[in-house]
Structures are given as C-alpha cells and as structure tokens.
Design a protein around this nucleic acid. Structure first.
Lengths: 216, 216
DNA sequence: CTTTATTTTTAGGCTTTCCTAATTTTATTG
DNA sequence: CAATAAAATTAGGAAAGCCTAAAAATAAAG
C-alpha cells in the first residue's frame, strides 16, 4: 500500500508522462508537487525500490505497470469524488479539486465501487476528464476539444482539460459555463485563434484556450 | 489544524471521558489507540502545548474547550459518513466503521455541511449514536435503551451504543437486525435480565446487553 | 572541446510519530 | 510504613518526508 505521499508522486508522474509514458524529470516533478528537487530524488529512490517506477539517476522516471495501476486507481477515485461533489452535493466544478485531493486517498475498494454505482458508473468527470475503470483502463472515445471544431458548427461546453483551476476561472470569467452552447464563427488561419459566438456575445479564444475546452 | 494522529487522540479522549469529562489515564488511551504508553505521554505533552487538552503528568488528561470542539467535529464527520455509507451506498451497519475512520479526517467544512444536508440533517447515525451539530452540540433527546423498556412493551431496534463491533456481531448472531421489532416479555428482578420475544423466538438478554441496545 | 550553466544527486538536519528499555512516581499490600 | 507492583515518564533511536547547501553529472555555448 502506498502512503499518501507516494500516491501523490505516482499521480504526478502519470500526469506528466501522459499517454506517451515518456520519462519525467526530477525538476518537472518538483515543480508539479511544489517540493524541492532533493526531496523528489529521495522519493524516487524509494518508489523504485518498491517497484512502482523505473528510475535512472539523471535520466528521469516512468511508471512500472504496478505503478500505473496504482496511479490510475487514485485518479479514478479523484474523478469519482469530483463527480459526487458536483452532481450530488451541488459544488461548483471549479471548487471540487481541493476536496477531491483529500478524498482520493481513501482506501476502500468497496467504497469506490459503490460510489461509482451510486453515480451511475460515469465515464467522465464534471471537467470532462475520463474516469478509468476499476482495472485502470480509460474509456474509449476521447473527448473533442474546441480546437477541432470547424467554423460554423455549434457545440456544448463539457469541461476543461485536467480541470486546471486558473484556466477554469478564466473560462468562467468569460461568462462561459458548463453546458453552454458555443458557435464557432471563424478560425484565424495564422494563429488558429477562434471567433466564437456565446449567446449575444462574440468572443475571441486563443488556440491554446480552444485546445483546453472540451465540447460535445 | 490538528494532524490526523492528533485528531485520533482527541477523539479517543472524548470517547473515554464520556459525558462526565473525567480525566483519562495514559494506559487507557494507549489501549484504545493500540499504541505504547510512552507514545501517548509524548503526544499528550504536545496536545497540551497546543492547548487542546489539560494534562497533568501522572494524573491524567481531559479536553480543553477547544479540544472538545475539535473532537466533536471529527465525531460529527465520522457519524455523518457512516450514515452516508449505510443510507446511500447500502453498506451494512457493521462494516462502515473502518471506512468512516478514514473519511472523518477529510477537512472541508463545506463538504461536511453539504453532506449533512444531503442526508437530511440526521441527528443519529445508523448505530443510533447522536451526531453533534456543526458547533459540537449533541442533540437533546437521548435514545432510549432496551433496559428502560418495561415488560409488555414492543419496540424497534435502532442500533447499539458506540457501534461496538464485537457487541454488534453478538446482536446479529442472535438474529436481531436494525429495525426489527422486539417485545419485552419479562424482566428478572434479581439481575435485570430480560426475556424478549423476537418474532417466534424467545431470547434472554443480560442487563448489560439490554443497556447497549438502542430502541425507539 | 573546454568553459559555463543547468540539472540532479548527495550529505546532513529537522519534525512527526512511533518504538524499546530504563527510570521514576504512584498505588497496593502485608 | 516499608516492600513490591503497577503506571507513567524520560532517554535514546528509527522511518517517512521534507528542507538547505555543497558536490557531481549532464547539457549548452562560445
């Protein structure tokens, strides 16, 4: 059983290596975890001893199959709890992350299963991020982002990538809420920025912003 | 903010001192927390420094008002989560304690409030134990125990005191479940033991057992 | 390809929480 | 009330996680 800290490291490695399973550097981890590089090195040695990561000093680290499984389970719990908080306890989607950071460490497979059933076995959390199944497998069809939407099409806002808080706040500030309808009016060829109609208003979204908004 | 360990100590002191607020001994705490006496002494010194307990070496310890408040809040969370697990996730009342031991340490006043509302602001948990309000105040009317029921009366089983696991198992073994109807047939004058009808069957319950079964 | 800058690791410390063993204080009992 | 037993505390140490500062490895640049 990983400790709370170990779980956070595994989760951070999963996040930073992404689909690609690319090696993650000590400094990247230190930045993500808000810790010093020396602390990260020490923890990586320990995770490596426990066979949860493949660690080459000076070269970086990636998850072993066992580590992937553990990290996916934590992520599953995190996203299930976020779903619970939004759907059942009526939290705003931008305020659930912190609490879910705590709840994700509760260790009870039965609780996780029952919670998932209680929520109707959701495949995506309120931010639009996929929820791994009990075996750590992510749902098939990936979400489309606003970048992929050609001019003239209407879409519904589903969420933002990884539930990034700052970005979430930015989107809300623009007046965009979950479930809102957007229509892509035009895409600028030179920088891929989009002109988007939101009700009466016309907004400009950078390519980066558009790539981080999930739509349906 | 108390640490997880500190919360467990405060909760244990609350439990052992009960209503009376009597001083609790080092060994009692060590037994309850499954720790060594030396560890308890050390922690009591620290809790005392933080003004959460009144501690006199060799004399025992009791909660300060601040400590009472903290302990009650943890207990509130514990019992709310137990209620959630039983009522919403259909756990058995005897299997919720362990998970609630983890959930009780989640720190989010908003979550606690919302959870309480979601459950309809219950005053008693599935074991029949009272749930303190957000200010640490316990509900007024205390539950009646089977001991107080005179011969000839019918009652519904509500729970057992403090959710004691061993006792819970004993009661279940007798075939008694939450919500079952019992009829007190007779009370023995010499030892206060009771003859109780449970459906077709006639059971004998000791005074101690009867005093630990909550009824309505 | 050597010098400089960056990244990473090592060395050594600190806090929390727990432990065992030894000592001291309090309680019990003949 | 002295001797023994029980309870509690102190002393010293370990593991987990984190830190700063110094050293070593790697990468970048002239």
């Amino acid at each position: 059983m990983p400790s709370l800290s170990e779980e956070n490291y595994l989760k951070a490695i999963l996040f930073l290596s992404g689909q690609t399973q690319a090696a993650v550097s000590t400094n990247e981890l230190a930045a993500r975890l808000d810790a010093k590089a020396a602390s990260v090195t020490e923890m990586l040695r320990r995770l490596s001893e426990k066979k949860w990561v493949e660690y080459r000093p000076y070269k970086g680290v990636y998850l072993s199959p066992a580590g992937q499984d553990l990290a996916a389970k934590v992520l599953r719990k995190h996203r299930l709890w976020e779903t619970f908080l939004v759907e059942k306890l009526h939290f705003g989607w931008e305020e659930v992350h912190e609490v879910a950071e705590q709840l994700e460490h509760i260790s009870s497979p039965k609780l996780t299963d029952r919670l998932s059933a209680f929520l109707g076995h959701p495949e995506y959390d309120p931010h639009g991020d996929p929820i791994p199944d009990p075996n750590g497998v992510f749902p098939k069809r990936p979400k489309r982002t606003l970048s992929e939407v050609p001019a003239g099409q209407k879409v519904l806002v589903q969420g933002v990538r990884d539930g990034d808080s700052d970005f979430l706040r930015y989107v809300r500030q623009l007046g965009i809420a979950l479930g809102d309808e957007l229509e892509v009016e035009a895409v600028q060829p030179f920088d891929q920025s989009q002109q988007v109609r939101h009700g009466e208003r016309l907004l400009t979204l950078s390519a980066i912003a558009a790539a981080n908004i999930y739509v349906l």
